[in-house]
Nucleic acid binder design. Structure first.
Lengths: 154, 154
DNA sequence: GAATCAGGTTTCAAATTGCAACCAGTCTTT
DNA sequence: AAAGACTGGTTGCAATTTGAAACCTGATTC
């Protein structure tokens, strides 16, 4: 009896990630959450997305473990959607997307929103891919490998 | 006469990025390109995507400037899709997505594909968001600001 | 207690996706 | 040089997903 190799999702972490949070609205919702948005109506107002779509996305994001539902912090009977640890760790993804967009999709003087460090008020350092010993890596400096049971596959 | 504030796309770099490369297939195509895939049929085989969808995505990725079309390097009359500088700079986005997936979407012993540094054969360093002076930043250490003509907006 | 707001669900039309068939140039094989 | 296969698509159609709007229930405010 052989165990099913992939009960859910692909073997590629990129593919599997995109399956759970990889649509436009989910990432925009998460971006808003990083700005402190927690309530359904606030997400809806900020994004302008249809309510049924927002409800559906929030539901799957909760199922996937990116958001928790909690009673609202203002004591009302309503709920709040707050990022879990798993959700907060999406921060580098959103920041790298933001930095790419700032660099390649805006003209220098064009109006944009930027992310600043609270302490210094300065823009963030550009994210760079580095090897385990700190060397900066280009795409061509890396290769993919299949890892089966923690061991390299032929 | 007032200039139109946003002729195309949102003011948020995250939103604008997701508009151009933010669907599942586009990012998967780019991921494959980082693995050296260049030909239409190779993308199609690797991704299992419908040919009309692939054609449509490649077309917009070329229009957006992420890919260039070049004559095939093997001397045949066919074409190749190769990443531009702009396209190669999506690397941190793909790597951050990959690292999040590896960490949160796989059980420890589960078969997966990993990205290794050619030089050392080791996994990459986890991407971290840092301030301009190198301090590691959490989402709550940052704030968004609107930048109009290079100047902070009220 | 009436009106309003939060957080949805339902309905239906429109857009997108995916599959399969087809097609025009290339390239290889004989 | 003709036959067959491969490359890089396009076209048509069915199925799924998306989006706008109306509606609804419980909580809150007036």
């Amino acid at each position: 009896m052989v165990e099913d190799a992939s009960p859910q999702g692909s073997e590629c972490p990129v593919a599997r990630t995109l399956e759970s949070i990889g649509d436009r609205w989910s990432l925009m919702i998460i971006r808003d959450a990083f700005d402190g948005i927690r309530r359904f109506s606030e997400f809806q107002k900020s994004l302008g997305v249809a309510k049924n779509i927002l409800a559906s996305r929030l539901k799957t994001l909760v199922e996937v473990g990116v958001f928790d539902i909690r009673p609202a912090s203002d004591g009302s009977a309503y709920k709040e959607y707050v990022l879990t640890e798993k959700g907060r760790e999406i921060f580098p993804v959103v920041v790298s997307i933001r930095q790419w967009g700032e660099r390649f999709l805006f003209k220098p003087q064009e109006t944009r929103s930027v992310l600043l460090d609270n302490a210094s008020g300065q823009p963030l350092m550009p994210l760079e891919v580095r090897s385990s010993n700190g060397q900066k890596l280009e795409p061509s400096d890396c290769h993919r490998m299949r890892l089966v049971n923690g061991v390299k596959d032929a």
